[in-house]
């Protein structure tokens, strides 16, 4: 029994996959807090598809895959920001057009010319295979980049997430903060894509943050709890991936989804109420106690 449980750890590729899944889960969990509270859940889904196009196009352009796909993803993110801010087209529509076009281009290029990088299936659903030193270093670097950015600019990110209009007039450059978040997001999606997969990255960004929102009313607590939940779901999901012979992205998302169901049942209406208005900016305030007229 014990031998069976410990069997995966005999293989270096599984151990590497486990490290990668923990780092990827923690990274997505941390980022997810900002993404969900800003009402940008869809952008994770969209950007992962955009980066897929970069994966396909980079080798054809003679660029290293990581560099090419990263630049492609960041370019897409900034383009979405510019188009959405111009207010001539909605943010959702901008994400839909730009990222699905990039994804379609990626599929066309991979089908026509093949790939020198990760396999098509691995990009779509994630894979335990092929996690080497370079992939781990990229993940570690992305996690450190995100952690340092959010720690050093904690108050500015909190302000621009909660109240961007007032943050802007209080001397914080909301445009710069948005661009920085897009950069962190693009790097993170690039680093996690081969572990979790294009189609499933969005779930690992959204679910841990939603789960911990049901448990706490504290922003700072959400940050570390979502990071921890993402890491734990990554480890458990990767472990199950080996035993069940299912793509790692799938099992990681299913573990996250299970955590969501358990916490939802445990917290009941209170948790649901907290999570329901995560990105809502239209609540009418409560009424007030009495005061006399001037």
């Amino acid at each position: 029994m014990i031998d069976t449980l410990l069997e995966p750890f005999q293989y270096q590729f599984v151990v590497n996959g486990m490290y990668a899944a923990v780092l990827a889960g923690a990274l997505c969990g941390l980022l997810g807090v900002f993404i969900t509270l800003r009402g940008m859940s869809y952008i994770g889904h969209g950007l992962s598809h955009a980066v897929f196009g970069g994966y396909a196009a980079a080798p054809l352009l003679g660029l290293p895959i990581v560099l090419g796909a990263g630049a492609w993803g960041l370019g897409s993110a900034l383009l979405i920001n510019v188009v959405a801010r111009s207010r001539r087209i909605g943010a959702d529509a901008a994400i839909g057009v730009i990222t699905t076009a990039s994804f379609a281009l990626g599929v066309a290029l991979l089908t026509r010319f093949g790939t020198k990088g990760p396999a098509f299936d691995a990009l779509l659903f994630g894979s335990i295979n092929g996690v080497g030193r370079d992939e781990l270093l990229l993940l570690l670097g992305a996690l450190l980049f995100a952690a340092v950015t959010f720690t050093a600019l904690y108050r500015a990110f909190l302000f621009t997430t909660f109240d961007p209009d007032v943050a802007d007039v209080s001397g914080i450059s909301v445009k710069r903060m948005d661009a920085l978040l897009m950069l962190v997001l693009s790097v993170s999606i690039l680093a996690t894509l081969t572990i979790i997969g294009v189609t499933l990255v969005a779930a690992t960004l959204v679910i841990p943050a939603v789960v911990v929102r049901m448990l706490t009313d504290s922003f700072s607590r959400m940050l570390w709890a979502s990071t921890a939940l993402g890491a734990a779901a990554g480890a458990i999901g990767m472990y199950l991936s080996y035993h069940l012979a299912i793509p790692s992205g799938t099992t990681i998302v299913l573990v996250n989804a299970l955590a969501f169901v358990v916490v939802l049942l445990a917290t009941g209406p209170r948790g649901l109420r907290r999570a329901a208005g995560m990105d809502d900016h239209s609540d009418v305030p409560a009424v007030a106690p009495v005061a006399a007229v001037r």
């Binding site: 509270l37 909660f162 007032v166 504290s218 922003f219 109420r273 329901a276 900016h281 609540d283 305030p285």
Partner: peptide
């Protein structure tokens, strides 16, 4: 700002 534009469910 106007109170009506604020997300009062924000975890803060």
């Amino acid at each position: 700002p106007q109170l009506e534009t604020v997300n009062w469910n924000f975890p803060v």
